[in-house]
């Protein structure tokens, strides 16, 4: 446990590691000697940026749920569906499994993404209670899963490109699509702004805090 949690970090060794090529250079080096990428021991203002993108994403997520995502014009009627409404009606109509999948992709993933980023960002403020392994896992999942929320935007685009059947049925993208797309992009930026090294820095801080009373 101790071995895996505690390690000599590049920063502690007075070095800065390149996130691209892993090359280390003395602290304060601007550009990576190997790949010429910009070097940051830790992302500057990482948490601030994360929160900024997070809030932007949350704001755009509101209209994404209020406005129709997709408009279906048929011979008989015109029907608009929102993200949540569509999934709920699907469940009502008996297709529970598909409904749940849709809810998972369109509702649970985006919202849990918000929650997960917020959780990680908030947890970093209290290093003592942090389980870095858990946080890191959460961070990895968020980073991996973020882009898949884009599916909804793609589906609407495909359907509206495909379903042009005159008066019988036509599908049009609703205004929510652009909001939802923004949400996905913003949350992806939010996740990318979070420096994972901060998670592991907490172990050092925790150790420092633990050791302080002992010395005193």
């Amino acid at each position: 446990m101790a071995r895996s949690d505690q390690a000599l970090t590049a920063r502690a060794a007075g070095l800065v590691g390149c996130r691209h090529c892993g090359t280390v250079a003395p602290l304060g080096t601007e550009l990576c000697p190997r790949c010429k990428g910009r070097l940051h021991s830790r992302f500057p203002h990482s948490l601030q940026r994360t929160w900024a993108w997070w809030i932007a994403g949350l704001i755009t997520y509101v209209p994404a749920n209020l406005y129709p995502m997709m408009i279906m014009d048929t011979f008989v009627t015109s029907y608009k569906s929102t993200i949540v409404g569509g999934a709920i009606e699907l469940i009502h109509s008996g297709d529970a499994f598909v409904g749940l999948v849709v809810i998972l992709a369109s509702v649970v993933i985006p919202t849990s993404k918000f929650l997960a980023i917020a959780y990680v960002a908030l947890a970093l403020r209290n290093p003592r209670k942090v389980n870095p392994h858990l946080l890191h896992k959460v961070y990895e999942v968020v980073e991996f899963i973020g882009r898949w929320s884009m599916i909804d935007v793609f589906v609407v685009a495909i359907l509206s490109a495909l379903v042009h059947l005159g008066a019988v049925a036509t599908i049009l993208p609703g205004i929510a699509a652009i909001s939802f797309g923004s949400t996905v992009i913003f949350t992806m930026f939010s996740a990318l702004s979070l420096d994972p090294r901060l998670i592991w820095d907490t172990t050092e801080e925790a150790k420092r805090e633990r050791s302080r009373p002992r010395r005193a």
Binding site: V76, Y79, S81, L90, D95, I171
Partner: peptide
């Protein structure tokens, strides 16, 4: 008939076009 069956379909499965099935 085509329109009717479409309408009946939509009736059975509201907003079927939107959420599939």
């Amino acid at each position: 008939r085509a329109v009717t069956s479409l309408a009946q379909f939509i009736e059975r499965k509201p907003n079927a076009l939107l959420i599939g099935r």
